[in-house]
Design a protein around this nucleic acid. Sequence first.
DNA 1: TACTAAGTTGATTCTTTTTGTCAACATTAG
DNA 2: CTAATGTTGACAAAAAGAATCAACTTAGTA
Lengths: 147, 147
Amino acid sequence: MKLSTKGRYGVRALLDLALHQDEGLVPLKDIARRQEVSLPYLEHLITPLVAAGLVKSTRGARGGVSLVKPPSEIKLSEAVQLLEGSIAPVDCVNDPKLCHRSAYCVTRDIWSEMKNAMSQVLDSTTIQDLVERQRQKGQPETEMYHI
Amino acid sequence: MKLSTKGRYGVRALLDLALHQDEGLVPLKDIARRQEVSLPYLEHLITPLVAAGLVKSTRGARGGVSLVKPPSEIKLSEAVQLLEGSIAPVDCVNDPKLCHRSAYCVTRDIWSEMKNAMSQVLDSTTIQDLVERQRQKGQPETEMYHI
DNA sequence: TACTAAGTTGATTCTTTTTGTCAACATTAG
DNA sequence: CTAATGTTGACAAAAAGAATCAACTTAGTA
């Protein structure tokens, strides 16, 4: 039941982007540095978010990425879905036809309940919520880390 | 966020075992056949359950496995923990020291909430609950599948 | 116009995890 | 004694995860 780095880094990238929105276009390089992720990898992480229209990218000098919607309208469920695919613990929860036992399988019902429990958390949290929590905690990113 | 076959097959094996408790010791071979899992693989799945004292095994002819506790006292959280390890979406939820960002990381808080949501489902469901659901659904296993 | 700083895309690679299999062994009933 | 079972550890094939690299496109700017 582990989240991959796609989901973890991807959500952090969105949060980082939201925190720096006011500075205009944010270069991936900056996000990569602050979030301690390699730039080539971040480029791949951001791809599905751009494809889905959650993030807009601008090429060229002074380019970068920006959020298309306000952070308050970006649910974590949406982001995680794009980054990781379905959070269902087992695929048969989404598509019963994948397993011929589905109709009589009671464990499948439990995995479905787990999915719902997770969805409830992710549906009720937005990037804006993360922004506010971050501002309360302070130290929004690693910027003050100069070794 | 996928459950591995260990968790899925393992919980099904426990349910199968609970459904056939009254027949005395249940050979792994029978569980493997009904649950459509290879016997050598099932042997490995059952190992942590035996080691934890959840399941008792008896070698030799007419041997097999049996539940140590009544099904009503076996929480799914306990079973899944043994089969899969922690359900925390990220390891830093269990051990903040794993990541130097933990203290200021708000995404970690969200993953922690997800873990709690999942735990709530698994803590409140026992193998006995599965047994009862299965009896209501009928067709407890594949026994009536003769092609 | 050239140059440079970006994002895009696809191929490739390395590592780890998953999902098993196999063989040798230990134990017990009959 | 023998057959049926569980135990253990080594091994391996396949898949997924986690990147890296190179070639390309685009856009600002000197």
